[in-house]
Structure formats: C-alpha cells, structure tokens
Amino acid sequence: MTRRARSFVALAALGVLGAVLVVAVTGLEPFGHYPGPYGDVLAKVVPDERHTGQLVAATVFDYRGFDTLGEEMILFAAVCGCAALLRVLRSEREEDEGAPARPVPSFAARAMSAALVGPVMVLGAYVVAHGHLTPGGGFSGGVVVAGALLLAYAGGQGLRLRRVGSITMLEGTEALGAAGFLALALAGLIATGALLKNFLALGTSGMLLSAGTIPVGNVAVGLEVAGAVALVFSEFLEQALLEDPE
C-alpha cells in the first residue's frame, strides 16, 4: 500500500475511532463531579491509619503498593533491554582507542555544572526523603538525582571518562533499589502475614520518620529510578561517543 493510500485509510479509520470514543466519553460523569467512593474513603481513613497527610504517597506505596511493585519490575526490564541493546560489541570497542574529537565545553558551562552537581543531588535526596510529607517522592526525586549525573557529563567530566558514571555502580544501585522494594514487600509478609503490609512504627504525622514503611519504599524506589535513568543515559552516551568504526 502506498504511503498516500495508507494515510487516507488511517484518517478514515481514526475518524471513526475518534467518533466512537467521543460517544463513549459522554457516558462518563461530567468533569468535576467525582462520584466514586475510593477517594473519599482514603481521605477519611489515611490520616488516622497511617499518620500521614500525603494520600498519593500512601496510595502508591501502601494501599496500592502491589501496582508499584509491578511498575518497578517494568522499569527494571526496560533498562535491562536498553543495556542489552546498546552493549558495546567487542569489535566496536577495539577500534575505539583514540582520544575523543568532541570539543571541551566552555569555562562557564564547566564551572556552573561543577557548582550545581552537589546541590542538585541534595535536592533529589530531599525530594525522595520527604515523599510522605510533600509532593514528590521516589519517582520524581530519583530522576532529579540522575539529572545531577547528567549535569556532570554536561560539565565535561564525561569526556574524560567516556561515560556518566561507573556502569557497575549504577547497575548495583538500580538492583539494590529493586531488591529493596521486593525485600520490603516480603518483610511485610514475614512480619505480619500480608504482603506489603505497613509493619513499621507509625510515629507522629508530619515528622520525617513517620508513616511506617512509606519512607522506606520511597527510598527504595528513588534508588531504583535514579540508577535506572542514569544507566540508560550512560549506555546511550557510551554509544554516542564511540567513534564510527567505518
């Protein structure tokens, strides 16, 4: 089928699909009239049961922690796939012994990046640690920490090392995060007989060490996401910085 014909067929089919979907969404509750019971139940129950005000974090790591376990495994599998696809073949590595031809960044870029790597890492750690008190949590904070590593590359450090960070260390961090979340789930099973049950002391609402296993889950997810994103960056950079073997 030629490109034009495919375009027309797609337009027609998608037009029909769009019309059907629009008819379908008229059956939903009007925007702003949230009917369902779960949000109200959570709002009533969570501050007492878990000593935290962050309903979203409580949902992600406690009430619907099983879904997060599945998402962790998706993340892990996707990064394994990336690493397998982008591995540097031995033939490519042998032809790549020369110095890189990329220009060194300007002094301003290097100075700013060097100055900001530390604060960005601390910011990421702060977002991860306060996930049960403020918006944020393991997922956002983990990506911020990986962004700090990318900043190190942009500042020129990667040009000498040819990669963002030691690949083994990044793989170790990611595996530690994934295993940590799994261990948390199993520990709940061992301690109380229910997988992912919140079994640590609940503490007072608003303190940093409160809400039981939710901050622990945040840290585990933060480690995994940071390791995963930094590993993906590292793999792509290593590929992109290789001299073309032809």
Binding site: V127, P135, G136, F139, S140, L150, V229
Partner: peptide
C-alpha cells in the same frame, strides 16, 4: 505530584 514527575521527566529524560 504528577506535575513534578512530568516536569522532571519531560525536561531531563526525553529530550536528552
């Protein structure tokens, strides 16, 4: 929460 994740992902991960 979702806005934070979207900002961070959309600015750091996808364009890079």
């Amino acid at each position: 929460d979702v806005a934070l994740s979207q900002i961070v992902v959309g600015a750091i991960v996808v364009p890079v």
